[in-house]
Design a protein around this nucleic acid. Structure first.
Lengths: 188, 188
DNA sequence: CGAAAATTTGACATGACTCAACTGGAGTGG
DNA sequence: CCACTCCAGTTGAGTCATGTCAAATTTTCG
């Protein structure tokens, strides 16, 4: 089951058999059920997680109790809260599962061991984070330049799969609008 | 003048005298005047730039001709468009100078040489991009959870310096509101 | 000083929100 | 297998924040 992770890392750097063994040794397999929390608000995040199977969501709860989805975590994505993970500070976010989910998790010390023992991982993670940064920048830009309706269409064409797997009100939360507004947009 | 760059890189990794020489050899110093373009929309971005002095803005122009500021680039920040830079694709963004600006620029081939000749740069850029990603994620989250007025206060307390250096209508553009709305928010 | 840019203000339009009610499935347990 | 509940989605009415358009005022800077 580590194969999916290793294949994914190999998109960016070569991974020898030895190195693959090190990777296998440092990541821990873990299963979560639908609705189960991976992280709760206020936890110090101890693991970054690669999604083998399933779907989760990272979200924030505002003072009025409303949930705002920051990101979905489908197969082959990473979920976690880098800020909390790196600073060992309580997280403002919660992560829970929209479907039964299987993860490969790595702790902070083990990630540092990984960088030390497999130097190409430094490059590999640099590239993966770079891609995540580009995506986050595009999302900031879309929030500034596009209407809610356009962002909804963008979302469906970029993540058709997620669009089929989650209820509309979760997508509304990701887009930053109410379920009612999304319903009206869809009715156009 | 390369000292500021090297000192900044040393926040994350050690840099030997030899390595510093390599860095000096691969970055090019360049000056821009206020209002001058560093990148124009449609350009393929050939350089990532470290800001030695001055202030620039990365922005996008929407179909109605309105400018939306994605990011400011003050001293010690990096400006550019990673997506265009990496994919050699025309940029959707423009970058121009709000003040006279001095940059240290590196091209894609030279950046690859830097990674090859100074392996710790792979780690250094991983960490810097990681920080940029965290900041971008926080901005996405703020757009979802905070009102325009709160985002304005957040901006002023996080970047008091930029708040003093740029006119309000540029901050409005960064916050995603009109100058008129910002003026009314300020009047509260 | 004078022109251009930035900011403020007013009147009005509009898009999204809130609150509320209603519809239609999906899942559950008797 | 049906009744019941729960949840997602839709729809309506009224409100509010922000946008648009226009003009007046202030500030900046050549």
């Amino acid at each position: 089951m580590y194969e999916a992770l290793i294949k994914n890392l190999q998109r960016y750097v070569a991974v020898s058999a030895d190195e693959a063994a090190t990777i296998r040794a440092l990541f821990t397999y873990r299963k979560y059920r639908k609705r189960q929390f991976i992280i709760q608000e206020g936890d110090v995040v101890r693991y970054e997680s690669y999604v083998l199977r399933g779907l989760s969501r990272i979200y924030e709860v505002d003072p009025k109790g409303k949930e705002h989805i920051i990101q979905f975590g489908p197969e082959d994505w990473w979920v976690g809260d880098l800020y909390s993970f790196l600073t060992e500070t309580p997280s403002r976010y919660a992560i829970d599962c929209l479907e039964d989910t299987e993860l490969l998790q790595i702790s902070r010390p083990d990630l540092e061991r990984l960088y030390a023992q497999v130097p190409s991982m430094e490059r590999c993670f640099r590239i993966m984070i770079q891609n995540a940064f580009i995506a986050a920048t595009q999302r900031v830009s879309a929030n500034l330049t596009r209407t809610a309706g356009q962002r909804y269409e963008d979302f469906l064409s970029r993540y058709p799969d997620i669009g089929r797997r989650v209820p509309d009100h979760q997508i509304a939360s990701y887009l930053g609008i109410t379920p009612q507004s999304l319903s009206r947009i869809r009715a156009r």
